[in-house]
Design a protein around this nucleic acid. Structure first.
Lengths: 191, 191
DNA sequence: AATACTAAAGGACAAATGTCCCCGAATGAA
DNA sequence: TTCATTCGGGGACATTTGTCCTTTAGTATT
């Protein structure tokens, strides 16, 4: 299992003791997904959270019209799960799918709860990572609230340039809260 | 200090032992704000978090055009702080202001960190409340991404009817990511 | 190679929303 | 009371974005 990038990632937020790290590591398993494969399926209870070692996950839900709305492109080096379902342990309205071949390090919900109970360091990490996640979502909401279609596109291009290359027009448009048509207009205007 | 509603609120998420509750309570102080008064000012480091006993706080920031953008109306019975500034202990881009007379129960950043370190129960609560906050923001982003001006207004009306009564047209419009003009159009169309 | 899919681009028109005003009612200060 | 200020409503027009549909290119399948 490739875990050095995972350990370095956690280290940024909180230093675990060697015993905490060892105890935690035992409960993570590695998982490989091919492009297009699902990590979490809508309608199921999401019982696992992942650190993305390589690749990219796309998270989406179906809006009122039944269209896929992407709300996150999770790159290598980040944490991903269907948060609402994972937190509340209820059926997920969200799906997570690999948009390229992806390697994950995965922990089960019950194992994570055990770590929280047994190890203060993991509990602290849990809180800090959730705070981080909150900030990401707050930023996303601010962008959606204030920026025009073009501004949002340019921002994505500068903040997550890989996404422009890896994701489909459809997925990028829904992430930005605009239509395909608007996105192709923006792209042709840039030339 | 009026703390029974605070205790009941925390209880929903995690039961503290009597000692944990006592130890925590000592570090909270009550604070009253008049309508219009600031709890957190943009540009300062936010060093406190609050439980709202009564009243309503509005959180906002200035967008690229220098206009106030409201991103939350925090009602009685909820937690409020300038999360980004509080988490990172850096100057806040956000302000929090009372839109009616408001009573708070307030804890200092350092005291909260002490509670986290000393008491597993408070650490757990910290994580659970942050998760909650994440879900609120995720929901807000989903609404902003998918709904028309009218849909967002109707949703606010049903999810937080008090806000329609207490907040100004300006503040409601910026919260919904629309202009004053669009909001008055929606209101006149309803009659 | 022939065929069927799928994804991206874009034309034409419609609808939603924004911009720039002005007006009148309500509020507060002198 | 009078005056100034703030706030909500709304008219007229501009702009942005969405909708619907067609075309083209690329990809995969047989």
């Amino acid at each position: 299992m490739q875990t050095s990038s995972f350990k370095a990632f956690l280290q940024q937020f909180h230093a675990l003791t060697p015993e905490e790290w060892e105890a935690g590591l035992k409960r993570f398993a590695s998982l490989k997904l091919r492009k297009g494969e699902c990590f979490v399926k809508q309608g199921t209870i999401c019982r696992k959270a992942a650190f993305i070692v390589s690749g990219t996950l796309r998270t989406y839900y179906l809006n009122a019209k039944g269209e896929e709305t992407t709300y996150c492109f999770c790159p290598a080096g980040s944490i991903s799960t269907a948060y609402k379902s994972f937190i509340l342990q209820q059926a997920s309205a969200h799906s997570l799918v690999a948009i390229e071949d992806t390697e994950l390090v995965v922990i089960e919900y019950t194992d994570l709860q055990d770590l929280y109970k047994q190890y203060a360091g993991w509990q602290t990490l849990g809180r800090l990572l959730t705070e981080q996640q909150y900030l990401v979502m707050e930023h996303y909401a601010a962008v959606l609230n204030n920026e025009s279609a073009t501004e949002k596109y340019l921002r994505l291009e500068s903040e997550q340039p890989e996404v422009i290359l890896k994701a489909s027009v459809e997925d990028i448009a829904s992430y930005l809260g605009i239509t395909r048509r608007t996105l192709t207009r923006i792209r042709s205007a840039k030339k």
